[in-house]
């Protein structure tokens, strides 16, 4: 695709690994960059709102985006608990942007997934969520065709007016590998941004996620004996059933598929 006149910007955040909780390149943001690079190549702009640590070992998360072959990341410097939406919107209002790519939601903090919607509202742009691919861009009619990811691998085709914001789903193409050399040599171009602190969230309590209890089957039995029967039936029945014979086997499998609603 040659979309040289197109102005595409991808917004990147610092991700967090699900188990080690170490900062890393956010998976969806990386996919957004991959999509952007495929769309406009070197013309892709990248924006991050936050602070860059002076310690190089703390920069690895942001630098890993540079390692995908970006020459620079534009940095809007703001304090840690500032509201990124305002900062980014303020910056983007001064640019002429056709497409803004983001992840669906951040990997840390509130992780509400609101940022693209709020930006769309403030910038008056169209918004499409969870895209897997940008199929085509019609610059004459200022329209694009995108594929939206639905559960279990399904896709919906959408037409959307330019300019627009798209959040990129995990179903999008895998991001290219981040290479160490370019990551170390890439540049940050920083501008100081006026910041408004997010007051509301300061009162919230944050703890590590508790494992949610597995919901028990609701037993609508009126007597103790029925409840007992229902509670014990699951343990003894079903699990580890062994079937012999072709006919019986096929039937048992079919029954399961029907029960699960797959056939």
């Amino acid at each position: 695709m040659s979309n040289n006149n197109l102005s595409v910007i991808s917004l990147v955040s610092i991700g967090e690994h699900p188990t080690s909780r170490r900062p890393r390149r956010a998976e969806q943001d990386a996919r957004a960059i991959e999509l952007g690079i495929k769309l406009v190549g070197d013309n892709l702009q990248t924006l991050h709102a936050g602070k860059l640590s002076d310690d190089p070992s703390q920069q690895t998360a942001l630098r890993s985006y540079l390692g995908m072959g970006l020459s620079e990341i534009h940095l809007l410097e703001m304090s840690e608990n500032a509201d990124a939406v305002l900062v980014i919107a303020e910056y983007l209002k001064q640019q002429k942007i056709d497409i803004i790519l983001t992840g669906v939601r951040a990997e840390n903090g509130e992780s509400s997934g609101m940022l693209p919607y709020l930006l769309a509202e403030q910038l008056g742009m169209a918004m499409v969520t969870s895209i897997a691919e940008i199929l085509s861009i019609d610059e004459v009619n200022q329209q694009a065709e995108v594929l939206q990811a639905l559960p279990r691998g399904q896709r919906r085709k959408l037409k959307i007016d330019l300019p627009f914001i798209a959040s990129v789903d995990m179903a999008a193409a895998m991001p290219r590998q981040s290479a160490f050399g370019p990551a170390m040599r890439g540049q940050f171009e920083a501008t100081q941004a006026a910041t408004v602190t997010d007051q509301e969230s300061s009162g919230w309590q944050v703890a590590d996620a508790k494992k949610r209890p597995k919901r028990l089957k609701i037993i609508k039995a009126k007597t103790a004996a029925d409840r007992f029967k229902a509670a014990t039936a699951k343990a003894s029945g079903g699990g580890g059933k062994v079937v012999h014979g072709v006919e019986e086997s096929a039937q048992a499998i079919l029954d399961l598929l029907v029960e699960e609603g797959l056939v």
Partner: peptide, 30 residues
């Protein structure tokens, strides 16, 4: 790997896991 970022197969995944979890398969380091 370090300049082109083109480790084939599951290489890139493994390397990413190593930097995030210090083990190649991305298991919880704890």
């Amino acid at each position: 790997t370090m300049e082109k970022g083109q480790t084939p197969g599951k290489g890139s995944e493994i390397l990413e896991n190593l930097s995030a979890t210090d083990n190649p398969n991305g298991f919880d380091p704890s």
